[in-house]
């Protein structure tokens, strides 16, 4: 392949006309002294620089703008109150039966991804969400639930009791004014509602690796968000919040999961059965995503030092996934975790 390079073409022309051989020629240079490189000039394991800006939106409880190279994502979290009377299959926690996962069963987290903002030529508005947008929303949702990051305690809204003038709603002292006919779960307080978090992710610019960018944006927005102190007002029959800025509280998030995605490029264009040499390209851009049929994604959490938790590992495609490869990729994911942590702080 290398000897057939025609010198009349510039590198850019060649890259456009025949992207796959061009990428292979870069990854497998004929001159062994040159390092293996991607078309965009990055090393195979090198990801793009990450930039995070938080709290730039007025109408959201928490927001973040994340730039991963040329991929720009805006995420906003809005909290809306959901009284228990509005939950059709509501079951008080004190009732018999197995403990309920309230976040999942009452749909308290509502993540959605909007790609159709003209973020790339293939994502034009006016059409229903594409398969990609739906897949991304679902993956985001399942990761939010499975990681157990959001604590349901933060989302509970209690009835206001007379004695409860403390800032801290968590301590359950004070035998308040129960309405007649209600059964308190813990003495003194009645659970009256929940916060539902609407997590909206909008792509301003799309250049590959949507899931990682979206997840970091969600993570940053959740870390950034503050909920007002809220209670149930029995007279008005609604949830009322305190306007005092000092009483807004951050969420107590559990863990710090970070996802790391890579594309796998094989030696042969669209290999069918036998797979030759392959390269794992971390943080693929739009052009690389088009050339690769395979991808691998790992969600890791290294919050506890020296102990990496793998929360999710998914791989699509035909390459054999051996122990060495998983370990190598875990290393990449760990590095990425460090980068993300640094960018968010």
């Amino acid at each position: 392949m290398a000897q057939s390079t025609v010198p009349m073409f510039s590198a850019q022309t060649f890259a456009k006309l025949s992207p796959h051989p061009y990428m292979l020629a870069n990854l497998k240079p004929s001159d062994p002294s040159r390092p293996s490189q991607r078309t965009n000039g990055r090393q195979p394991k090198q990801s793009r620089t990450l930039q995070v800006n938080t709290s730039s939106l007025t109408h959201a409880n928490g927001s973040a703008m994340v730039r991963l190279g040329d991929t720009t994502v805006i995420c906003a979290v809005r909290a809306e109150s959901l009284p228990v009377t509005e939950i059709p299959n509501y079951r008080p926690a004190s009732s018999t039966g197995p403990p309920l996962d309230e976040i999942a069963s009452y749909d308290l987290l509502v993540p959605n991804i909007e790609l159709a903002t003209g973020s790339a030529p293939e994502f034009l508005p006016g059409v229903p969400p594409t398969a990609l947008a739906q897949t991304l929303s679902t993956r985001l949702y399942s990761l939010l639930l499975s990681s157990g990051m959001v604590q349901v305690d933060d989302l509970r809204i209690w009835e206001k009791s007379e004695d409860d003038n403390d800032d801290n709603m968590e301590d359950g002292d004070g035998d308040g004014d129960q309405e007649l006919g209600t059964v308190p779960e813990t003495p003194g307080r009645t659970l009256r509602g929940y916060w539902a978090l609407f997590i909206d992710v909008t792509f301003a610019s799309y250049d590959g690796n949507p899931f990682d960018a979206a997840w970091i944006a969600v993570l940053a927005a959740l870390h950034n968000m503050k909920l007002p102190r809220a209670w149930w007002d029995a007279d008005m029959e609604m949830v009322v919040c305190s306007p005092e800025g000092s009483e807004f509280q951050k969420l107590h998030l559990e863990g710090f999961p970070v996802s790391c995605t890579a594309a796998v490029v094989t030696e042969r264009d669209h290999a069918e059965h036998s797979v030759g040499k392959y390269w794992v390209l971390t943080d693929p851009d739009r052009r690389e995503e088009k050339l690769c049929d395979e991808s691998i994604c790992m969600v890791v959490d290294c919050s506890r030092r020296g102990d990496t938790k793998i929360l999710n590992l998914s791989k699509a495609g035909g390459c054999e996934l051996d122990k060495a490869l998983i370990n190598e990729f875990r290393q990449t994911a760990e590095n990425r975790w460090q980068d993300c942590r640094a960018a968010l702080e």
Binding site: S81, L82, E86, I87, P228, V240, C241, P243
Partner: peptide
């Protein structure tokens, strides 16, 4: 059905007490 719709019940944006 192509989006995640959230709770079936009606949710309401925060209402602030004695808003001055």
């Amino acid at each position: 059905r192509r989006r995640i719709n959230g709770p079936v019940g009606v949710t309401s944006p925060p209402v602030y007490a004695n808003h001055t």
